[in-house]
Amino acid sequence: MTQVDRPLFTDEAGQRDAAWVQAALAGEAVAFERLVDLYQRPAVGSAYRLLGNRDDAQDIVQEAFLRAYRSLDRLKEPSRFGPWLMRIVCNLSLNARRSRGTRATVTLDEKQGTDDRSSEFGERTGGPLRPEQVASGKELQEAIDAALETLPEKQRLSLVLFTIEGWAQKDIADMLECSIENVKWNVFQARRRLRVQLGNLLPG
């Protein structure tokens, strides 16, 4: 079962997070540690997909948790801790990409989630590719990365989180504070715009 089938931001999760947030605000350090344990993996995964570097992703997530902890008393809806944190992660990742010149790895494949030959961080774990595959694949990926930079933020995030991270549409909608229909539209528009820009580089 993919993450698409198991939304991260459920009502039950919101109630649990709210209790831990309130406990953390009351001085129970272990409560925030539980939130870190829960969201560390998806946060690092999303940051990695936007940055393309594991160390950078882990640094971004550490900074995101630090900012979340310092601003915890300003979170108006404790039940929305998950979407709130992930938005911090994504915004920090986008800022880091712009300042460091890094690019995300994204595909226009209609399949959701990662390649079944990829590891947790998206690194290929199968056998070596042939030289001609490396050359053509690198050219296409560089073109996709460049085109991705031209997309509006919500389209870019919707596409990356839905098609690469395998996020549920409801989770993306919660994070971006929009409707599920808007998420679907953002993904559709992002794919359409990238295909128009890439033209003949895409396989037939």
Rank of each mutant, 00 (worst) to 15 (best):
37 D>H: 15
102 T>E: 12
53 N>L: 12
144 I>V: 14
25 L>T: 06
177 E>W: 08
50 L>Q: 12
117 R>I: 06
70 R>G: 03
103 R>L: 10
5 D>N: 13
111 K>G: 01
2 T>I: 15
6 R>E: 09
54 R>G: 01
33 E>G: 08
144 I>M: 11
87 R>M: 04
4 V>E: 11
82 G>S: 00
3 Q>T: 11
185 W>P: 07
99 S>G: 01
159 L>P: 09
47 A>E: 08
202 L>M: 04
46 S>I: 10
14 G>L: 01
164 I>C: 14
38 L>A: 09
113 G>W: 08
84 W>T: 15
170 K>M: 07
204 G>H: 09
49 R>N: 05
71 S>M: 11
90 C>Q: 06
86 M>Y: 12
28 E>M: 05
9 F>K: 13
170 K>S: 09
106 V>I: 09
52 G>V: 11
37 D>K: 13
180 I>K: 15
137 G>A: 06
204 G>L: 08
188 F>S: 07
158 S>W: 05
100 R>L: 14
119 S>C: 07
74 R>V: 11
117 R>E: 03
125 T>G: 05
93 S>E: 00
120 E>A: 11
166 G>Y: 07
58 Q>F: 10
102 T>G: 06
121 F>A: 05
39 Y>N: 04
84 W>D: 01
152 P>D: 02
188 F>H: 15
187 V>L: 01
158 S>V: 07
201 L>S: 01
92 L>V: 06
134 V>I: 15
116 D>V: 15
90 C>S: 08
129 L>R: 14
171 D>M: 02
24 A>P: 06
185 W>Q: 15
56 D>K: 06
85 L>E: 00
8 L>G: 02
20 W>R: 13
78 P>H: 02
57 A>N: 03
43 A>E: 09
50 L>S: 07
74 R>K: 13
131 P>G: 00
122 G>H: 03
161 L>W: 11
6 R>A: 09
165 E>G: 02
184 K>E: 00
155 Q>A: 00
91 N>C: 06
57 A>K: 04
204 G>S: 10
105 T>H: 13
115 D>I: 07
70 R>D: 00
77 E>K: 15
174 D>R: 14
50 L>P: 06
101 G>P: 06
166 G>V: 08
144 I>C: 09
16 R>K: 12
36 V>Y: 07
119 S>Y: 00
181 E>R: 12
20 W>A: 09
136 S>N: 06
